[in-house]
Amino acid sequence: MDMDGFVEEVVRISGRNPYLCYQCGMCSAVCPVAQYMDILPHQIIRLVQMGDPAVLESDAIWVCISCMACVDRCPRDVGPGIIIDALRQFKLRRGAEKYDYFQVPELGEAPSLALVAASRKLTG
């Protein structure tokens, strides 16, 4: 995968400015799923600031569920959850699939909104 210019694309997709972040850690503190992440939300934003494509390989970007807890509380209005979604989009638009439907045993039982949301967040 060509990673050149991934920060510019993530900025464009998200419409947010990651360079405003001053690493206060609010996003990681309020994240309801932070304990399941390999790197924390504020670390994700730091990697984006540094232009490190390793961030795209983190599992954390797929753990985020866009609950908006960090977006509403970010003191710099960086919107970490929106930038994380743009990182997912960067991958999905290049063919990534993070959701193998046929590995889900209760697929037919889950509410439609869970299935539609998972489809939109985890498949391209």
């Binding site: 439907y101 697929l107 037919g108 039982e109 439609s112 539609v116 998972a118 489809s119 498949t123």
Partner: peptide, 15 residues
């Protein structure tokens, strides 16, 4: 005869 039966075989419907 419910959506679950269809979605379990054709999950892409939810896309």
């Amino acid at each position: 005869p419910d959506a679950g039966s269809v979605i379990a075989i054709f999950p892409e419907v939810t896309r």
